[in-house]
């Protein structure tokens, strides 16, 4: 049994999504190959990987939109294959290429979805107005969707999830094709969802964006999860260290004091008054205290956070080890 299988054998206490040996085959080809993962309540979880890695297929299996070939997945305790309506009542989905009825207005599109959700007239109107306010589309509520930009359509898709009051939001490549400003706004909306307790599953290959919002990520490669964990954890595992902190200060025995900080792996002396530390967390506050304790003068303190891009590049250079590594 692989390390990851050991880890996921018992579902996390508050896991809202739990996949066990989840497999999707087309003929003899496995596009998703016995993957295991848990997503905790309120977490923003990223599915990363190149196109065709199996991210969207995994999402479709979670929603009951495609048959599961083997294994199982539990969404909020429900089986999407047997209880699809229970799952779909609680899960909002924003597909990669989100489509709306162009001849209808934003409100009409949301009203149609709300009717399908089974909401009554009054409740429908109230929720739609609130959702459009939340995604900042209230001023174009009565305009036809045909006139909307891609960013506005994505926000309208998010409004639909808000109307549903989904406990889990599944967002498939939500920022692809958005301009930088629209991307920032969209990522802010994801943070707002998280703040309201919504669990977010985000599939993307925009690594910097994923890093900005995700608590944990799973790296997909040819249908398997190659790695899983927080960015810092993956950084330690893949790059050998997570945070790189540079200190410029004078004082006696600073290098020794910096090395004694918990979490610091290595201290490199670049010059008499310049030090570079690698640590598994952001240790700037501890470094500042160490300089002060040494009666030194702190002139500069900077940190390079671990880059998901670097992790991804390193991870996808090496062949898979067979089992899945879980850094958590």
């Amino acid at each position: 049994m692989s390390e990851q299988q050991n880890h996921t054998a018992a579902t996390r206490p508050e896991a809202v999504i739990a996949a066990r040996d989840l497999t999707k085959r087309y003929g003899k080809t496995s596009v998703v190959d016995a993957i295991n993962f848990d997503i905790a309540k309120g977490e923003v979880f990223g599915l990363l990987g190149p196109n065709g890695a199996g991210k969207t297929t995994t999402i479709l299996m979670m929603l009951g939109l495609t048959e599961i070939s083997a294994g199982r997945v539990s969404v909020l305790g429900f089986d999407p294959a047997r209880q699809p309506l229970q799952v779909k009542r609680r899960v909002g989905y924003l597909p990669d290429a989100v489509g709306f009825y162009d001849h209808l207005t934003a409100v009409e599109n949301l009203a149609y979805a709300a009717k399908l959700m089974g909401l009554g007239v009054a409740e429908r109107s109230r929720r739609i107005a609130a959702a459009l306010t939340c995604v900042r589309l209230l001023d174009v509520a009565d305009k036809r969707v045909a006139t909307f930009s891609r960013g506005m359509r994505q926000r309208l898709g998010l409004a639909e999830i808000i109307v549903k009051r989904a406990e889990i939001a599944i967002l498939d490549e939500p920022t692809s094709g958005l301009d930088p400003q629209a991307t920032i706004e969209f990522l802010d909306l994801i943070r707002e969802l998280k703040a309201e307790g919504v669990t977010v599953l985000l599939s993307s290959h925009m690594l910097d964006q994923v890093q900005r919002v995700c608590d944990r990520v799973a790296l997909f490669r040819v249908g398997k999860i190659a790695m899983m964990g927080s960015v810092a954890e993956l950084s330690v595992q893949v790059l050998g260290a997570g945070f790189v902190v540079e200190v410029e200060a004078d004082g006696a025995g600073i290098a020794r004091r910096l090395a004694a900080i918990p979490g610091v792996g290595n201290v490199e002396t670049l010059a008499d008054d310049r030090f570079r530390m690698t640590a598994d967390r952001d240790v700037r506050a501890d470094a500042a205290r160490a300089v002060v304790a040494a009666n030194g003068a702190l002139r500069r303190l900077s940190v390079d956070e671990p880059s998901l891009e670097a992790i991804y590049a390193r991870c996808f250079q090496v062949p898979p080890s067979g089992g899945v590594r879980d850094a958590a």
């Binding site: 939109l65 489509g99 009825y101």
Partner: peptide
């Protein structure tokens, strides 16, 4: 073609 099918079928209907 309008990419509405998956969004609609993600609502609680068969």
């Amino acid at each position: 073609n309008r990419c509405t099918l998956s969004r609609i079928l993600a609502q609680p209907i068969y």
